[in-house]
């Protein structure tokens, strides 16, 4: 459903992505691994249109995404959960959720769509704090909130950047469980992770990046077998 072909992205003059290609099939949970600074976040930003690739193509359900603004890409059904949480500090938890609902949505949401009620049912902790400022939540709660905020727009695919970073091990499990739940509801997921041990529990397939390029693609068994690759390109 998502085909990234040979994209090149820059920050100013520095050339960050050197021809990245990857594919997502409907319903998959794919994980993008790699050391710090290799261009994982930039890859997600390029798909989302936050960074504009200078070359290459990104097709999502037969639409070209390159050249579109982030809001247009979001309206086509791509959800983005950036690193560092990025909740709206001065909005309440409830208002943060409302921000996820897309006003310009073209297709109406069918059965099983995400609503505020459903979010509160699933995450009573968010309902308890619905009138608190977003900035008053704990790290784990903030992460939950950013994910469900994006879900409120009922995306078909979610790009999620290091969802477990900086969270206590118990909370990491909560967040991963949540992603599994989301995926079961039919949403395709592309997740960036540094935490290889966490990723291997939930992902179907893996890509590994190094210096702005994809250096490995394969499923869990292939990654476990490729000891050299893991040693060279992942944190120990």
């Amino acid at each position: 459903m998502l085909e990234v072909r040979d994209i090149h992205s820059y920050y100013g003059k520095s050339h960050i992505l050197h021809g990245v290609s990857l594919d997502l099939k409907e319903g998959e949970l794919v994980c993008l691994l790699g050391r710090n600074g290799v261009g994982k976040s930039t890859t997600l930003k390029s798909i989302m249109g936050v960074v504009k690739p200078q070359q290459g193509s990104i097709r999502f359900r037969d639409q070209e995404l390159t050249g579109k603004d982030p809001y247009e890409i979001a309206r086509l059904g791509v959800g983005y959960v950036p690193e560092d949480r990025r909740i709206f500090r001065s909005l309440t938890v409830h208002e943060n959720l409302l921000m996820g609902i897309k006003s310009g949505e073209k297709e109406s949401v069918g059965e099983g769509g995400w609503t505020v009620e459903r979010v509160y049912q699933l995450f009573p902790r968010l309902e308890e704090r619905k009138n608190n400022k977003g900035s008053h939540l704990s790290g784990g709660e903030q992460q939950m909130l950013t994910v469900v905020r994006t879900l409120m727009g009922n995306p078909r695919v979610i790009l999620i950047d290091e969802p477990t970073e900086g969270l206590a091990p118990l909370i990491v499990k909560d967040v991963l469980d949540m992603l599994v739940t989301v995926r079961k509801s039919g949403v395709t997921i592309l997740m960036v992770e540094q935490n290889f041990k966490a990723a291997i529990k939930v992902a179907d397939r893996f890509y590994i990046m190094s210096k702005g390029q994809i250096v490995f693609a394969g499923n869990t068994a292939a990654l476990l077998a490729a000891e050299e690759v893991r040693k060279n390109y992942l944190e120990v």
Binding site: M48, V50, Y71, R89, S90, K102, E105
Partner: peptide
Amino acid sequence: VNDSEMTNTLGVNV
């Protein structure tokens, strides 16, 4: 005002 880029990625025509 908080974060215009995030607002944009949530589907608002910023």
